[in-house]
Design a protein around this nucleic acid. Structure first.
Length: 283
DNA sequence: ATGGTCGTTTGACGA
């Protein structure tokens, strides 16, 4: 919920804003539309960054989200990938991809917009498939280009959130069993080094500010009852610049959203959200 | 440990 209090100084208007931002790989926006509508109504995020929408842009259900009070910015391609940002606190300077100076992505995996004074990116990082697969090199290159785009898009002194499905578990405690991931993607040294490009720039893993040390996951394989065996990974991340990290008061993985009957199946990812209490000043 | 389950451009492929 956006809570704005205007404080009128001599020539400065300051808004203190409580903003809730969620990232959620929905694994098909069409298949998950009912669940997404219910989740938005229940949790009232101000900004929703969704991944794997699997929708072409001309099929995006703009009117449904507008009916819930959200502006929509989307970048899809049909069968695979696809990302969007929904915002009810404004949506300015939209941009898809890495930007003009950087080798473009062939897939719909990234977009940016300024929402409520925060520069927001919704990312769907390539999976990588296997360490010896070409897709792994694509993943590494993709993360290099994300870091390069960040340099152009924002400064660490400004409010920035880069969130999404990173397909990388930052640390061993972010997977149920590190040994099970030896020699596979999501935990390899090289891809973790690419995440460090983001943290070296100044971004902070906002979830870890509030859940230090816990093994809590955001993704569980559909197969073999992984969810009920707690065999998951934390790969859906919200990174914030220092001003955002300082004002991040709450973070949660809504693992209940990973549950559900065959008739109304969940995504294999749970929504992850943070609450940000920050101020915007306008002359 | 292995096999298992979702989604999509219906069916092989990606996750």
């Amino acid at each position: 919920m956006l809570k704005a209090i205007n404080i009128c100084h001599t020539k400065l208007l300051t808004w203190f804003v409580l903003m809730r931002i969620v990232t959620w790989n929905v694994n098909s926006l069409r298949a998950r539309l009912g669940r997404i509508e219910r989740w938005l109504a229940a949790f009232e995020p101000d900004v929703a960054c969704l991944q794997e929408t699997k929708l072409a842009d001309d099929a995006f259900p703009t009117e449904i989200f507008e009916g819930l009070g959200y502006e929509c910015f989307y970048h899809g391609q049909g069968r695979w990938n696809g990302v969007c940002i929904l915002s009810r606190v404004g949506l300015e300077n939209p941009m898809t991809g890495f930007g003009a100076e950087i080798e473009p992505d062939r897939e719909a995996r990234l977009l940016w917009a300024t929402c409520g004074g925060i520069r927001v990116a919704s990312c769907y990082v390539p999976n990588g498939r296997a360490l010896d697969h070409a897709h792994y090199q694509y993943k590494l290159s993709w993360l290099d280009r994300l870091a390069a785009a960040l340099e152009v898009q924002a400064s660490p002194s400004e409010p920035v959130i880069v969130c999404g499905d990173f397909n990388v578990a930052p640390e061993d405690k972010d997977v149920y069993d590190p040994k099970a991931f030896a020699d596979s993607t999501h935990t390899s040294t090289l891809e973790r080094k690419k995440l460090e490009l983001l943290t070296e720039w100044g971004l902070v893993d906002l979830f870890r500010l509030h859940h230090n040390g816990d093994s809590l996951f955001s993704w569980w394989d559909y197969r073999a009852g992984s969810f009920y065996k707690h065999m998951g990974m934390r790969i859906d991340l919200l990174y914030g610049s220092p001003p955002v990290a300082e004002s991040c008061g709450f973070a949660l993985i809504d693992r209940n959203e990973r549950k559900g009957p065959r008739q109304d199946p969940p995504s294999d990812h749970a929504p992850v959200f943070v609450d940000i209490d920050h101020s915007i000043s306008i002359k």
